[in-house]
Design a protein around this nucleic acid. Structure first.
Lengths: 212, 212
DNA sequence: AAGCCAATTAAACAATTGTACAATATAAAT
DNA sequence: ATTTATATTGTACAATTGTTTAATTGGCTT
């Protein structure tokens, strides 16, 4: 199996130059933040000369917007794939989802730098706002589906629950915990976070999540 | 009573110049984001010439760091004051706290711009990280205190609950909902948010929050 | 080999940035 | 009124920014 490329490394030999620039832009955002992500810095990660950027993209801002769409879509796809794989046991799929979020390789300043840059752009570029909105809707919908399956799996009636509110609440708490973790890595350990999430999810959904 | 100044307006006649610059910096961040917050823009909001900034602050970055400390501290103080006032009825104080967060005047892009800029700085400046860490600790502690009081007020035993986990979880969900609200104002209404929060808080704490 | 087209480079552009500094204004103290 | 110290301005500067453009490369077709 191909080893999974992280967003912190760029394959300079990538023949798809448009994708190469996206990889380089994300990598630069992760390592140097929005301010440090200059055309020259992106070009360095791409192993290319600054002037080439405008040959493939209308400009720097457009490239970063495309990078956002790419990364957000990729995250959603990953999520949905993992969920669909584990649909035979929705509860353990849910558990895997939570654990993955707080896995060390998905935390840290470098990830936060990327999302801070994207959120910042969302405030000014309408196309990004629409991208975010679309992805968020699908995200919640997918989580609703797992919850529904989990209820059925437990022979409970999902129709008695407000699945949407549950999904939105859970995602909000995940975002909040993740944000705090990145801002202050010493504040909460992975186990702290999981315990909090499990407790909240069990209380509100009535589903048994924790393993004994 | 003095009308409360928002972070979107600056009193150019303020004789305390150091504070004037802080107000101007925050105002600029709110209206133009980190990228648009130049020394010249800050000076314009302060009604002053760009050169004056280095006379009162070591540089632009230092000023913004000070602005963060000021605003974060102010928010914490406001929170603690309101809580202390309502300590005779902790449950309604809690309710007021929730409602205040999702009041229209505390939402919106302009607020998010400020915090995105600050969070971004937190990733590079250690002093800001410490400020954030300190304030967050006090924030959770205060929320723990309300919860404890609420239990006692209801003649329940607070020692049976993990107050810290509850507080951290609630704050995380608030942050997540607030963030999503700012990024996509159409996604969730104020009532949506409150319903979600109330439901989660009631389920996990066992306290009755909702009004009939 | 010759010619052509796209990819890529290298250099230059004007604009904007944060900051430094000498000149000037202001107010207080003598 | 003169001095002194501080507050403020206006300008200049070097550095960096995103982008443009002419020159150069490299591979493909004929």
């Amino acid at each position: 199996m191909k080893d999974k490329k992280t967003i912190f490394e760029v394959d300079k030999n990538n023949e798809d130059k448009k994708q190469l620039f996206i990889d380089a832009a994300i990598c630069s955002l992760a390592n140097h933040g929005y301010k440090g992500t200059t055309v020259r810095q992106i070009a360095k990660y791409a192993g290319v000369t600054p002037g080439l950027l405008t040959h493939y993209y209308q400009g720097k801002e457009v490239l970063i917007a495309e990078s956002y769409k790419y990364l957000a879509t990729q995250f959603l796809d990953d999520f949905q794939n993992k969920i669909n794989e584990g649909m035979d046991n929705p509860i353990s799929a849910l558990r895997g989802f939570f654990q993955n979020i707080f896995a060390p390789e998905n935390l840290g300043k470098r990830y936060l730098r990327v999302w801070l840059a994207f959120w910042t752009l969302t405030l000014t570029e309408e196309s990004l706002r629409n991208t975010h909105s679309d992805i968020y809707k699908e995200y919640t919908k997918s989580l609703e589906n797992i919850l529904r399956s989990a209820y059925i799996h437990n022979e409970q009636d999902p129709s008695k629950k407000n699945l949407r509110s549950l999904a939105v609440g859970i995602l909000a708490m995940l975002d909040g915990l993740w944000l705090e973790c990145c801002l202050d890595p010493d504040a909460l350990s992975k186990n702290d976070n999981l315990a909090i999430i499990y407790e909240f999810v069990e209380s509100t959904t009535g589903l048994k999540i924790k393993t004994n």
